[in-house]
Design a protein around this nucleic acid. Sequence first.
DNA 1: AATGAAAGTGTTTATCC
DNA 2: GGATAAACACTTTCATT
Lengths: 153, 153
Amino acid sequence: MAKKQIYLLDRIDRHLLTLLNDNSRVSLKELAQHIGMSAPSTTERLRKLEDAGVLLGYRVEIDPVVLGYGLTAIVRIRQLPGQLQKVEALIREIPEFIECDKVTGEDCFIARLLLQDIGDLEPIMARISEYAETNTAIVKSTPVKRRLPPLHQ
Amino acid sequence: MAKKQIYLLDRIDRHLLTLLNDNSRVSLKELAQHIGMSAPSTTERLRKLEDAGVLLGYRVEIDPVVLGYGLTAIVRIRQLPGQLQKVEALIREIPEFIECDKVTGEDCFIARLLLQDIGDLEPIMARISEYAETNTAIVKSTPVKRRLPPLHQ
DNA sequence: AATGAAAGTGTTTATCC
DNA sequence: GGATAAACACTTTCATT
């Protein structure tokens, strides 16, 4: 399998992606004005970034706290022998797990968990603990909120 | 300080947020058609979700791999005595750290790090290691990509 | 809180450079 | 790869329920 081709961004691509990450519902006209191009050229730039797979999609950022999820936890999970599939399926099924990575090292999964309050931790973790050892850290603050990858020249 | 008021979503709010998270550049007309309302009512719904702080913004999803970041690492960081500010500042300054949470427990920070290849790990971690003990796990796969919080009734 | 219709504005297509 | 201009489509405002 050939290595995936890297897409080289120019100054305008970087500007476009940054503007869209500030507000992806911005109008094409406004985008075009900011980058100093015509609207059709701006459309064409976006199409290329999408076709190349750089721009995977346009999402929303939602505040979990306003929806009642006052706590975020980061859970490290090491499944018991033979339980990898079961643990992975559980994490997928429990919607409070909003992200999960499988990693190298002694932990096998690292997952991000939303909780309404600390009382919700135990019932959720009890479901996992049948099949895995876990380590839970509660998020106190977030010095760096999810940001874009570095967009080099 | 009073507890932040929780915003109760109805069926239409949940539908709107889901549609926007699939494609936040969708037109108001299309949004309105999907939820079975007029365009002005849809605008008003969005405005309320924004004003209530549920909808924090409209972002893009970018594929780091296509930009050359073939590796993701999750780094746990425990600063040496008196070095908390320095460690936090370093993580903020290094753009390859795309997210960082401060957590309870023996680790102090958990951060997500993008790397072009494994050779880039050492120079970045060397900068941190002057001020902290670290533990790095390489992401092998992502069973759950970042998804929306559960949107209950 | 929502609608329909008109006025205002933005987007797309076609053509050219 | 980008620009202009005309045709087309969408969004916002307003009056109404």
